[in-house]
């Protein structure tokens, strides 16, 4: 198995094994070390049926999970490099836990597909600070952005 497919399998496995990611219907694509997350539109994501507009909670959860997946991916790439380019068969990625997140809602989310990417602004030993952006038709027209701190799981020494 190539490095790339092992890494992609990891992300696929994670996204299909976490119920809440399935509930939201999220999809993740990897290009090099960058994750692009997708939240395909479905009526269950609506918060305001009269506009209609996506629920801020759905958009917020999407941003948060995108940040987590980017951190998990970065960790897996580091672990692969440390393990000579391979991940152990029983590799279970440790999930970073949000400490605090601030969401800015910039535009009403339309009832269409939404995309998000995360930028890890600093990754320390214990804490990672991450900015996440979500958009729909135009990358430059963000519907929401978030920044937050995540607690990275400590490996047993």
């Amino acid at each position: 198995m190539t490095e790339t497919s092992a890494h992609s399998d990891l992300l696929d496995g994670l996204s299909s094994s976490i119920p809440y990611i399935r509930f939201l219907g999220l999809i993740f694509e990897r290009r090099g070390d960058e994750i692009t997350a997708m939240m395909p539109y479905k009526p269950d994501l609506i918060g305001n049926p009269f506009l209609p507009a996506l629920h801020g909670g759905a958009t917020g959860a999407f941003l948060e999970i995108t940040g987590v997946m980017q951190l998990v991916s970065d960790t897996a790439l580091q672990d692969m490099a440390a393990g000579g380019g391979a991940l152990p068969d029983d590799y279970i990625p440790a999930m970073p836990k949000p400490i605090d997140i601030t969401f800015d809602y910039l535009r009403s989310g339309k009832p269409i597909d939404t995309y998000a990417r995360a930028i890890v602004q600093r990754r320390g030993r214990r804490i990672a600070n991450v900015r996440i952006e979500a958009w729909q038709e135009e990358r430059a027209k963000l519907i929401a952005a978030a920044h937050g701190n995540f607690l990275l799981s400590q490996k047993a020494p």
């Binding site: 629920h55 917020g60 279970i92």
Partner: peptide
């Protein structure tokens, strides 16, 4: 949000 512990996803609390 975490199959190992059964803890709800942080996003669910956000929502």
């Amino acid at each position: 949000g975490d199959g190992a512990t059964g803890v709800l996803g942080g996003g669910a609390i956000t929502a």
